[in-house]
Write a protein that binds this DNA or RNA. Structure first.
Lengths: 224, 224, 224, 224
DNA sequence: AATGAATGAGTCTTCATTCAT
DNA sequence: CATGAATGAAGACTCATTCAT
């Protein structure tokens, strides 16, 4: 433990990181109000007091976890949204990345974090930032495509929010249907399959309506 | 206070209902783990012991609230989804009803209820039922429309889940952006406007892609 | 315990009183900061939670103890200060009463209570009231005597404060010199003797200076 | 910060002194039980561990503060009590010095220190010594004056204790009445005025009783 | 049906203290 | 001489729940 720390980088994470890792897992399972410092200490392998050496209080831990998640999520989503290939391909990457993040890092679901978050303005602000940093790169794709004349002039931001809603909906459904229960210790490995990705992209691009019979007009199918 | 309360049976709700009303509000604000029996008693105007006369424990209260919400939600959504008019009109009613329910009854958001729900199989089962009872009537619309040849042969259930996801996404966004914070005492009265409803229906029906030039073939618009 | 509560009035004190009794003893021993709710519960024979059923928090217990002490102290001191006999006799009663209160009820020493009291404006206010209610009846004696021409025109209130200071000084000395230590479980029974009372009254009345060569008799000025 | 601090040895007090200074302030504010090593470290500008380099434990800090206070107090009071001038003048110096010490050094009030002092025999012994070293030089004045026939044969030690009690009483009153609260950060600068000093000396010397109808002059017995 | 006193395990947090560096 | 990570007991206080009335 004291000698040659280099070869064991995974074992000797700085305590602060260990706490954050455990905290994210527990937050996911029990929510903020249900997160017990005692349990967090146990799972971190540290004494209760030690946690308070690194964080002033429970709330600060939530904020730190959120901050970290925001950074990771933005980085991945932005990378997925970028690219010079077609808009459909970029959207597909975003969708796949979202599901993958959910499985690998268990991030984002924190979007749904509502306990106590509801009362704390600082947490609310972070969640808003969180959402904004996800919405923006996706909205940018739509805006570009619309400008390029490849998409209809829909509201780019609303559309991005809609896409994120769809994705979140599938994630929630999977967690709910998971046989082991939400946030179980044993994380079910079943990824959200390609069928869901295909469906989502297809729906987003084309909608549900029959493509208009290419010969005559069907102009009145559009509402509003 | 004790005498002559009989003549007002309609005004003084049965205690059980009073508790459920208060419980729903508190669950919305603080989540399950954050729901305190003491606070529930105070808000119900009853003694703590009295609550235990009506419910065996805290979990039973959650279950009752969920049951009640399920009934109300199903009833409204089913009514909105029914009708002999066009599919677009029925979908529009569903969308509007969802947002309205959210504002009037504050239901549904419980979909996102995650604390302790994660550990309790009975609560999980209820949430699954909840979701199913919302998805089904919506999926039925899609199935009908597809059978009638008015919609493309998409996966009806996935599409219904997608629609619910979009709706939930907008609700979450509104709560997050509300200046008063999530679950605040003063519930912001701003409904989700017609623009959101229009956008959602339009996106769902038509997708984002440019409609193919109505003269020639549009076979290559579908991705994959 | 349930039947015939009358014959055991000392055993079946209402819990609130039991807590206050124990709290006063512990406050005396350890001060406010040193008062442990756990210890208080143990000494009260109640569970920790039960105490919080009767008092909202630790501070409220201090306030209640102070309130009770104020009432008792005022009542005794006022009774001692009243009377139609000579001023010296009344002062002597006040002095004796103060020492007796100290021994029997262990009150007043709370005058010296300084921990956390220092920070809490409400506690400070109570202590000021405490002091005022002791000072006033004593100062009244001096004021009367001065008006009657039986005492020199000294500042009555300052003189009362001075007398209380002397008394407090002897009490502090006795506690400090007590072989068992301050606030020990075994309360030393040695009262502050008549010699101290005599000394105090003599000093207060006559001062230390040699009386000017007496021309006439002044025999009745000296108590005893 | 680490380099070249040597040339300022007078400005950067030895750490031990810094700790004692901070400790005295905090003891005054919060008492012993309320003194937190964390806060002490912060106010000392040192790490918690460093404090334990200078003192074995918290109790030792209290003892050191007391020792230092005793030395300072004795030195000042003895100097004030000494002198070849009249007894009244020497007493007046003692009284003024006491109040001044209280304001400048905030010492002595520790006399009232009761937390944990009550349980620790060593601390009790120190407090007894403290008191003794204050009482003795004052009692000596009385003893001398009595021997010289300038004062009545009162009990010199009891009288000294009485005087200290009066002084302490005024100090307590000032702290209690101070608008800023006991031990506040902003120490109110208002000294106890000359009126209090005059009153105290007058009362001590002459008592409250009417001086017997003066045949000859006794003008020089009254101070001021 | 309703109450409020009572409980003990639980909450988050701070404590004084140790120790390797 | 100095640090900061670490600790486990203790701090005040809340929890869901029980029960006699």
């Amino acid at each position: 433990m004291t000698v040659a720390e280099a070869p064991l980088p995974s074992n000797s994470l700085p305590s602060k990181e260990v706490v954050l890792e455990a905290a994210q897992r527990l937050l996911l399972q029990y929510g903020y109000a249900g997160l017990s410092m005692r349990e967090l200490a146990k799972q971190s392998g540290l004494a209760k007091g030690t946690i308070y050496h690194h964080f002033p209080d429970k709330r600060a831990i939530l904020l730190s976890v959120l901050e970290r998640d925001i950074a990771i999520a933005r980085q991945h989503i932005e990378a997925a949204a970028a690219g010079e290939d077609g808009y459909a391909a970029r959207l597909r990457r975003v969708i796949a990345t979202f599901f993958q993040l959910q499985q690998e890092r268990r991030l984002l679901i924190l979007l749904a974090l509502r306990d106590a978050a509801g009362r704390d303005p600082q947490v609310c602000a972070l969640l808003r930032r969180y959402r904004q940093e996800l919405v923006q790169p996706i909205a940018a794709i739509f805006a570009e495509a619309i400008a390029a004349g490849e998409m209809r002039p829909v509201n780019a931001e609303m559309t991005a929010v809609s896409l994120l809603g769809i994705l979140q909906g599938f994630v929630a459904q999977r967690m709910l249907l998971g046989d082991a229960g939400i946030g179980d210790d044993v994380i079910s490995d079943d990824v959200i399959g390609d069928d869901v990705i295909d469906h989502t992209l297809d729906l987003l691009l084309c909608g549900v309506l029959r493509p208009p019979p290419p010969v005559e007009s069907t102009s009145n199918t559009q509402p509003g």
